[in-house]
Design a protein around this nucleic acid. Structure first.
Lengths: 137, 137
DNA sequence: GTTCTTGCAAAATATTTGCAAGACG
DNA sequence: CGTCTTGCAAATATTTTGCAAGAAC
């Protein structure tokens, strides 16, 4: 495990594995929940917000992570599956706990065919379910 | 049509029908798409942002409208159906056009049973599909 | 030396609150 | 009078950009 794997994951997405990016990726992997920019800034207390921000943008652009708007007012980020393509067929579903405010990625949520209005074309989608997580109910 | 109906709609939700609130509701009804606070501020150029903001909060609190995070960075608002309860069974689905940046409410989108992790309880949910609308494809 | 990355500062954008004046009952 | 509503101002939060110094190749 460890550093070498992280480096590989970045390189697989054509991202230079700099020290800062490794820290950000490491933190995202360690977290079981989606993290906001502010969350990461706190977790990596040595790091500059802008640098984390640009790391996240780069990661997202290269499909290493995806962003989630869970209704808290700040965008959260979470790792994509290795084969993630962020297409409608691979909709990212997330669960936001209204009590502890954590946002979980839900894998394997199967969504049905979408019956969109005529001539509307889906490119991707996001599904956020809100409620109580197992610790907070 | 008109003023009397708007007044009734507010009163049905236990909202005092003030002049400003009628303007905001009227605008939301006229718009075929979801509107942000900034959108409303422009549309109702005589109105103060704070007043619109508080109208929207009141409307949302009393379930006259619902809010949507469509990924643009600003929250949008749209009218609820008259029988809307904003529960998981009545999930609000929306379509955001990546080209013209408009957000449409999708009625009658049927979502499947959600297979949540054990002990997770859904209270409501939001589903945003992104792509191209009929005018922009 | 040229490109990429980082960190500080600051701008831009969005949301929210404080407070006093006014409207309403 | 007392509560609700409004509008201005300002605070807060969040995201984004400019720029120069430093690192990487």
């Amino acid at each position: 495990m460890g550093q070498q794997n992280l480096i590989k994951e970045l390189e697989n997405r054509a991202i230079s594995p700099t020290a800062m990016r490794l820290l950000v990726l490491d933190q995202l992997k360690k977290a079981s929940v989606a993290m906001s920019l502010a969350d990461l800034e706190i977790a990596l207390d040595q790091a500059d917000r802008t640098t984390i921000y640009r790391s996240l943008k780069k990661f997202e652009e290269n499909k290493l992570i995806h962003s989630i708007e869970d209704g808290t007012g700040s965008v959260k980020y979470a790792l994509c599956e290795s084969n993630c393509q962020c297409t409608p067929e691979f909709t990212h579903a997330h669960f936001h706990c209204n009590n502890c405010e954590q946002t979980f990625c839900l894998r394997n949520v199967h969504l049905p065919d979408l019956s969109l209005p005529k001539n509307f074309v889906a490119e991707n989608s996001s599904f956020v379910i809100k409620g109580r997580c197992d610790h907070c109910r």
